[in-house]
Amino acid sequence: HSLPEEMKMPKRKCHVVVDSTVEALIGALRDNPRGVLIYKDEIDSLLSNFNRYNSSDEGYFLSLFSGTPFKYSRKSNNEHIFLANPYCSIIGTTQPGRLGEQFGGKRMMNGFSSRFLKVYPEIDKMPSWNDTAMPDSVLEEWERIIRKVVAATPSTDQEGKATSIELLFSQEAKLRVIQWKDEVNNKAYAETDSDAVRALCGKLETYLVRFCLVIQIMHCICGESGMDKIEPGTAELAIRLTEYFRNMESRIAPEIETGILDNRFTELLGNLRDSFTTAEAVREALQLGISESSVKRFLRDGGRGFVKKKSHGCYRKI
């Protein structure tokens, strides 16, 4: 028997997405309008696949940060998807030696790197093992909180669509946030010539507002305050959290800069003139054991921030 025409394909509800290809992610965002999380134990598996199959992948993730409305057409089944308010969080881990390749060069200049909040704790020695366990009461309380967050359902309009909840800043909280912008963030922006630092200043302003929203809602979920406005205490906590991530970025930036080039490409650039051609780079690279395709890809990607294209087949070192 054929299916009735009015039947709709069931939507796959989820919070965490495993398949992070753009097509799979867009399908998940369509079925989960409240947003999803991409979790990668090794974030390199996500970043290294950008632009492998579609040159617009990285650009899509750049715009996804701002929740930009997005239209997508699946040629396989002639499906057209419109995401009015896409939201996706990404969390993952990596090694310090991989930071340059993952977040350096062009990704530092175009704001891709500053879209990621980074944590780089000072660990001088390996922690010891012991048999201490998290108390069951703490685990149960945390599960209760998270389930309450997930179950929190916004109101719906007459058509059954979820309506958003708008939280405004209290006057005192608004003045505190403005003070931070004028006295801290604007000052940091004015005192640097680094495009990367300036890009970070812009993204931290976005994160500050988001931190205010998350902290206020969590206070409400835990019964510590209401959900009618952003309170002064919330703004203060959000500012402290924002400055924590600024400090983390300042610690991690040298790792990104020094890890951008491996020894072979460092030697390659050292052997080339300030201005050089593709043929000269290929000839020198072959002597260092670097394949022609690798060096051409290196040049095409802007030498990870160390090379600028002058004209077709001609480059100069920055």
Rank of each mutant, 00 (worst) to 15 (best):
L175P: 01
G67R: 05
E205L: 11
K13A: 09
R251I: 07
S66F: 11
I256K: 00
S155W: 04
D131V: 04
S73T: 11
T153H: 14
S114Y: 01
G160T: 06
L286W: 03
T153Q: 14
T206H: 11
T132E: 12
P4G: 03
A285Y: 00
Q171N: 15
E141N: 10
T192W: 07
I217V: 15
Y207R: 09
D274W: 03
L299F: 02
V184K: 08
D19E: 12
Y189P: 01
H1E: 15
E236T: 13
S137C: 04
G302K: 04
I217W: 06
N32A: 05
D136L: 12
S170Y: 01
S73L: 14
V177I: 13
A151V: 02
C14S: 15
C314M: 14
G270M: 07
G35T: 03
E101D: 11
G305E: 00
S311M: 10
A133Y: 08
F265Y: 13
S294E: 13
S89V: 08
T21L: 03
G160I: 06
L47S: 00
A28K: 02
L286K: 12
P127E: 09
P154G: 13
R30N: 15
D31C: 13
A162M: 14
L167A: 06
S293V: 12
R300Q: 11
L208W: 00
A235N: 04
S137N: 04
V214R: 02
T206M: 10
N263C: 13
R316T: 11
I252M: 10
S56N: 06
N110R: 06
W129M: 15
I318L: 11
K203I: 14
S56I: 03
V22T: 09
